[in-house]
Simulated scan of single mutants.
Amino acid sequence: MIPDQFLAYRIKSLTGLFLKEHLKEPIGAFWGIISPAAIFYMFNIHSKAGLENYVSTSSFFFAYVISTVAFFGYGFYIIGRRESGFSRSFIYGSTAKIIFHISHFIAYLLIGFIHCTLFYLLTKPFFGDYILVEYRVILGRFLGSYVLLCTLSIALTLIPLGFQNANTFLSVLSFCMVTTCVLAARTPEGFWQHADFFNPLSHIANVMSHGFPTSVSFYISISILMPGIFFTCIKYMRINPVWSRY
């Protein structure tokens, strides 16, 4: 039995390692924060309609930032690390897998907090002064939505994909989600509205705009589904370092 203090220390140390690794990649900040903020201004700079409601106007862009962190941060790097010597050397037991996943989750939860805060700071001035209450509402919805999307992201890591194939797959998935949202918004009826019902990005944007559902069944389903997927992915975590093939 490993003492709880030692477990906490290992989780804290590994979380810090993952944070440092992510923050050393400026390209991630560009795609996750600067690029969405620039597109946000491009869409709204000449529009005066709806500018009084920052939350609803920015909901889709916050949802896109969430999907970027959840898919290309949290999920994608789990796939990448299982092909490295790091996984084969250090993640070989159930306890090590739990520590790895908890640390990875906490690290990208903090990264999501940073992305949300910076995006708010960059885009809010176009609508007026910063409002602390508004920021807290956005942050709560952002982190809650991120946790939900991480459930889907970690489930995708069970698919037998290599690092390069995963990059292509997630890029195509992201493109399809964004395209479906745009086409559904432009066509009130028809195929794209039905397709958008299965679009995670659309549901996350709705949460960012209107908040989480209030039904008890929703929270019961989530409380059962999320731990189930999380522990299933830990149990069947694929470890396949590239150098083990030779």
Rank of each mutant, 00 (worst) to 15 (best):
D129A: 15
G128D: 03
A29T: 13
E21Q: 04
L158V: 11
F86L: 00
P26E: 04
Y77R: 03
S89V: 01
K48Q: 06
H194P: 02
G211P: 12
A96T: 01
V137S: 09
T123D: 06
D196N: 15
Q193C: 07
F127P: 07
M1F: 04
Y64T: 12
S84I: 01
G190P: 09
C233G: 00
K20H: 00
L156A: 12
A38D: 00
F212A: 07
F126M: 15
Y54S: 05
L183T: 07
L149R: 07
L143Q: 11
K124I: 11
S217K: 08
Y135I: 05
N240M: 12
P227D: 09
P227K: 06
G16C: 00
F119G: 05
S153R: 05
L158A: 14
E189G: 07
Y246H: 11
I98Y: 05
H22N: 04
G140N: 12
N199F: 11
I106M: 03
F43W: 05
H194N: 13
I204N: 09
S94T: 14
I66S: 06
L51D: 01
T180I: 15
S223A: 13
Y41M: 05
Y219I: 05
H104T: 05
V55H: 10
S94L: 14
T151M: 11
H22Q: 10
R186Y: 14
L23W: 10
S171Q: 11
T151N: 12
I11M: 02
Y246I: 13
F18H: 00
S87E: 08
E83R: 08
F62M: 02
F126P: 08
F218D: 08
S202A: 14
F40Q: 02
Y92P: 02
F76Q: 15
T214V: 12
C176N: 14
A155Y: 09
N206L: 13
F43V: 09
Y108V: 09
S209Q: 15
P160Q: 10
T151S: 14
L152E: 11
Y120E: 03
E83I: 03
G32E: 09
I234R: 01
P188L: 08
F126V: 13
G190V: 12
Q164L: 14
R245P: 00
G80C: 04
S94W: 14
V137I: 12
L143N: 03
A155Q: 12
